[in-house]
Amino acid sequence: MATVTTPPDVTPPPAGRPATAPKPRRVGGTRFRLTPYLLLIPALVLELAVHVLPILAGIWMSTRGLTQFFVRNWSEAPFVGLGNYRIVLDLDGPAGRDLLHSLVVTTFYTVLSVGLAWLLGMTAAVLLQKDFRGRGLLRTLFLTPYALPAYAAIITWTFLLQRDTGLLNHVLVDQLGVTQDRPFWLIGGNSFWSLVVVSVWRTWPFALLCLTAGLQTVPGELYEAASIDGAGFWRQLRSITLPMLRPVNQVLILVLFLWTFNDFNTPYVLFGRSAPYEADLISVHIYQASFTTWNFGLGSAMSVLLLAFLLVVTGTYLVLTRRWRSDD
């Protein structure tokens, strides 16, 4: 990106009288030095109460044997040190094996969903770059899944994917005759793919939204100049569009990653209370482990491990993509 450097508009004060140069006038001056902090207090208190405090409490809970007997008097739960972590990290035990399995499933799910959502969003954004009749209408249509309440949209997919009464099997089996027996889409191995499709359906509009806004900042002259130089569509995409979108992509991919990795709504509404083993995403896994056994100590330990994992991934990502923002 071309940076325009403006000459500094502050002329150094003449030697000999450094302190008397008039300061630029500020609104309010020193009288309001406390004002910004006062304005922030409500937001800070709320964030502390509902986000920071529970995280700290969660870390504390993960060191306690917090079972159903202590839900109403949690301070009396016995201290177990790292015992909970030992249980959920023990890969020979069932808890550890299931957690690892869930982590692997979630990782595959996230990579596939984010990749596809980005690809669809990018494709549509580029194809909608040129104005044509009906473009506005199409954009609005594409954004609708993002606007729908999650549960209403996902429950529609649940209906659509029913084995006996759903649209998908009606098309595949009755109308096209692709297979003879009706496959299950919400049980077994297929459930994973159902999850990916629904997730992509719900998230790609957000990618489209961000990428469309990003494309609007690319000056049209760049494409004209490139056309004159004989650069074709793909060359322009590679040399102009993608580099100009790097700052948008850095944030977009991270946001998509975190949303998808922590996705609870899609599996919970799609499968109901019991998620299939093949589609056991981490949020639902922790949720079910905690609320079926009421062992909040174990649940907290898994949550803390999840947080640590996400922090490491996010940190690594930000370091690796730092130059996306600066050097181009």
Partner: peptide, 22 residues
Amino acid sequence: VLSTQMFPGILFLLPLFLIYVN
């Protein structure tokens, strides 16, 4: 503030549940 938005909801859920109950 922005990064709290990125934390998994499940992380707050169990503590918040117990905090509210207690």
